[in-house]
Write a protein that binds this DNA or RNA. Sequence first.
DNA 1: CTTAGTGCAAAGGTTTTGCAAATTG
DNA 2: CAATTTGCAAAACCTTTGCACTAAG
Lengths: 149, 149
Amino acid sequence: MKEEQSLFANYLKSKGLKMTSARRTVLRAFIKSEGHLSAEDLLAAAKKIDPGLGQATVFRTLKLLSDAGLAQDACQEEGPRRYEHVYKQSHHDHLICIGCGKMIEFCHPEIEKAQNEIFKKFGFRGTGHKLELRGLCADCARKLDEENK
Amino acid sequence: MKEEQSLFANYLKSKGLKMTSARRTVLRAFIKSEGHLSAEDLLAAAKKIDPGLGQATVFRTLKLLSDAGLAQDACQEEGPRRYEHVYKQSHHDHLICIGCGKMIEFCHPEIEKAQNEIFKKFGFRGTGHKLELRGLCADCARKLDEENK
DNA sequence: CTTAGTGCAAAGGTTTTGCAAATTG
DNA sequence: CAATTTGCAAAACCTTTGCACTAAG
């Protein structure tokens, strides 16, 4: 939290932007939140802290958080765009069941290594990755098999 | 193409849906297309084949293609939702420059292996993955360094 | 003080839906 | 034939923008 505060403050300063109370409010709401949240979710959460906050501010701040590297698109298939924290240390990747939508988060060190190889190969300075595995969980696989007898 | 036709036909049949000429048109346009395309792009492409086609049909068919596992969300950060083919054999992963937006597609066999380990560990029957690496390409990294002297 | 940020409401863009007519199995 | 699908236009939805006012550096 403290760290994210100052990361954001630094980012703003580097761009000649200002740390305002509205932005602090949105950041607090965002940090407290869990999972994937839409701009509307974040607005609701932020309004609990400051009811006078406008939705345009949330959209604008979310874009800044994303530029600052603190938030990233969570890439849902449907509905509004959703965002999630970017965790500096432990990347959490996603395993999603296409049957029931259940989502499991996991880490895999091999993938970190592979990532760095790719960056090197293409001359990139890496900043992050996002991996989504899709499949059927055991329950859904069983159900499907039964349906098809 | 032939294969995708019949995959789609099977999917439709399994759901009690019908293979119509509009759906064939959208499928053809989708298969011919390359890269990431929005519903609007697909509509334009499909209209070249059948000018009478309506946009609602494209949205509806795109959802079916996605349910059938032939199309998937390409996960851009901004603008309209974009879709891309699902390639059965060679997964192409994405390396994206956050500076200029340049996108490189690559394959990495280690990642295929890691993917299967994860699926096994969680009892999933896997169907695919999506990996996005983000960073600065050599050009953008250089530019940034110069700016900050 | 000067520049950037805010909330509001209106505009913009994308996607979905209701419906009567047309098409499919 | 019964059931699904279509194109159209309208509606719904999500996001951005213009503006007058306020707050930050």
